[in-house]
């Protein structure tokens, strides 16, 4: 394993120390339990927006803490949902008296730990994010995973809270984003988890994993490596057909790197995706391109498409100041 780390058991703690050092005027980082909060919290009378999840997906979630987005993030161990302790500590730090919105990616661990924390908190609402069309949706299974849409939910719910919306409204908007967003990803390489030391799966040089999540789990199927146009199509068609998105829709197109993909390739893929959407009569009115929901060093991409209306667009455009996403301020 080649990593720039000291003790593998301490990677999250050590990285949080670096995060705190890097953003002293933006973030307040506490360890044990690990919480990353905006220095401006609590904001009296504002709904507090909290998310969290396993580490290894950076900048998700800590990189989205700041005014206009998350009040706090709870980083778990690598690929491990945070504990109720962390979530309760985060809520205690940032609750401004107007309620706490918990944004939770739909994984068994995340759901259970946030559920436990919520039992100890007053006035919370939980919104589950489950946008991954690679997973069959069914009430008999764990259901769809939360992936790329998480950033969009956090941004839009955070903007609503910043604008003074109440807890119900914030939750409703977050649910609207979940309802209108679909994602799918593929991997060219597997990530290497620090506490494991070997790649999470082994992929031949001429194959890709299609329908991957963000935890190094193998995908739904392996396919021969194809050119970018074919790969982009293989991801976008299931996304568009699922909601479905149809001609006339206005959408946000989020082209996400899984971590190790060069920006050159990411923009190349984005260009193809824009052409594909245009050919379907779908108008891209907002875009996000970059490594935002990652899986350590995994090479690969995912797309998220979100149907926009003017309310969601305005909330997307609202000022945001976080380590990883910033505009208008």
């Amino acid at each position: 394993m080649k990593k720039i780390i000291n003790n593998p058991a301490d990677v999250v703690t050590d990285a949080l120390r670096g995060l705190a050092a890097a953003h002293p005027t933006l973030l307040r980082v506490t360890q044990d339990p690990a919480v990353v909060a905006w220095v401006g919290t609590p904001v009296a009378g504002k709904v507090a927006v909290i998310s969290g999840g396993g580490s290894g997906h950076e900048p998700l979630h800590s990189g989205f803490v700041g005014p206009g987005m998350l009040d706090a993030a709870c980083p778990g161990a690598v690929f491990t949902s945070p504990t109720p302790d962390q979530i309760q500590a985060a809520a205690a730090q940032v609750d401004g008296g107007a309620g706490v919105l918990l944004l939770v990616k739909n994984y068994t661990g995340d759901v259970l730990n946030f559920e436990t924390a919520a039992e100890f908190l007053d006035n919370t609402r939980t919104v589950l994010i489950d946008d991954d069309v690679a997973v069959q949706d069914s009430s008999f299974t764990a259901g769809r995973r939360g992936v790329g849409a998480t950033v969009l939910v956090e941004k839009i719910a955070g903007a609503a809270a910043a604008a003074g919306a109440d807890l119900d409204t914030c939750a409703r908007l977050a649910e609207a984003v979940v309802a209108g967003a679909r994602s799918m990803g593929l991997a060219l390489t597997a990530p290497t988890v620090p506490h494991v030391g070997s790649p999470s799966f082994v992929l031949p040089d001429d194959e890709v994993e299609v329908g991957i999540g963000i935890h190094g789990e193998p995908g739904r199927r392996r396919e021969p490596l194809a050119d970018a146009s074919a790969l982009v199509t293989a991801l976008l068609e299931p996304i568009l057909d699922d909601l479905p998105f149809t001609a006339g829709d206005q959408v946000l197109l989020f082209t996400n790197s899984m971590g190790g993909t060069p920006l050159l390739e990411l923009y190349l893929a984005h260009g193809i995706a824009e052409e594909l959407l245009a050919a379907r009569g779908i108008t891209v009115t907002r875009r996000l391109v970059g490594p935002y929901v990652t899986s350590l060093d995994m090479q690969g991409i995912s797309f998220t498409v979100l149907r926009l209306d003017s309310a969601l667009t305005d909330l997307w455009d609202a000022p945001v100041h976080t380590a990883a996403l910033r505009w208008g301020v």
Binding site: G76, T83, P84
Partner: peptide
């Protein structure tokens, strides 16, 4: 286990 583990295994 509940307060320190996280993941699915911690709460379960």
């Amino acid at each position: 286990l509940i307060s320190k583990v996280g993941g699915a295994a911690g709460p379960l």
